[in-house]
Design a protein around this nucleic acid. Structure first.
Ligand code: SF4
Ligand code: SF4
Lengths: 146, 146
DNA sequence: TTATTTTGAGACAAATTCGTCTTAAATAAT
DNA sequence: ATTATTTAAGACGAATTTGTCTCAAAATAA
């Protein structure tokens, strides 16, 4: 069961890198992040481009350019990132994919899944980059692979 | 967020078709199921082959052959199907895919995800084909698309 | 202006999942 | 025996996700 796409996982790691290692407002180069986090530069660029286009980041070209968070990290939530990179319907999934069922004629796991989905969505909606990032800057969590 | 692979979803639908429409012990032809459920015959064949190889089904070749459940439906659980078709590690997934973390140095959503995963696993382990099938044979749920 | 650095955009390639097709093997009926 | 029916096995193709590469556009610095 894969929850997040690579795009979401990488995008998130990049944002957390910024929160943990940079001052809010600084422009951070994608190259630097791709090297620190061992993520393909071009792939990461595309991912962050999406986040920029959707207004989560701001970008600046040229020397000393890069990207920066458009909102303070405590106002950016997991759900914002995931919705952009994995789609608005990320939390709309059905568990068993039976045809012709749904709210009106639910299968035996429907209600369970409904509750689980709601909890997941709530968790994502209430966990901000700040919460995720604190532990990392405290060095209790790493972002790099090696 | 895709939970089940197509293989699991299709395999499950086939099993439920058997439970809902056939007597236990009958050999059901894959061709029939593929047509009733609008699933590619060859694809379904491969899926059910896996279930046969793993001992969940028994197959019989030749005219009036087909497959049949090797155990009564109330002894076959969601988790059995999913583990075969989506892998033993289906419930072992991490939520954020951060490198270098885990039980010892968990990210802020780790514990939440641990509980959620356990609940999901428990639900899958306690929901049998019988429970899923009852509603279907009562015609409160359909298996076909159209 | 010219060269350098950086993101933007899109074509392309590799890997995975999903689906199709062909041929073989087993069984049954004639 | 021969033919028809059915699953078994695996090659092959299509679609999606993931990752790479090239070139353009914007900004800076010399
Ligand atoms: S009843 Fe709900 S969970 Fe079950 S198969 Fe239908 S949509 Fe999915
Ligand atoms: S702490 Fe747990 S949930 Fe969070 S990224 Fe690590 S393994 Fe995944």
């Amino acid at each position: 069961m894969k929850v997040l796409s690579k795009a979401s996982a990488y995008g998130l790691r990049a944002l957390l890198y910024i929160v943990a290692h940079k001052k809010h407002g600084d422009y951070v180069s994608i190259r630097e992040m791709s090297e620190e986090l061992n993520i393909s530069f071009h792939f990461l660029t595309k991912i962050l481009q999406s986040l920029t286009q959707q207004g989560l980041l701001e970008s600046y070209r040229g020397p000393n350019g890069g990207i920066t968070l458009k909102r303070p990290p405590n106002e950016i939530f997991l759900i914002d990132v995931v919705k952009i990179l994995d789609g608005e319907d990320f939390f709309d999934t059905c568990l068993l994919s039976l045809p012709g069922c749904g709210e009106a004629e639910p299968c035996p796991v429907h209600d369970f899944w409904k509750v689980t989905k709601a909890a997941l969505k709530n968790e994502f909606a209430s966990t901000s980059l700040t919460e995720l990032g604190t532990k990392i800057s405290e060095n209790r969590l790493r972002l790099t692979d090696d």
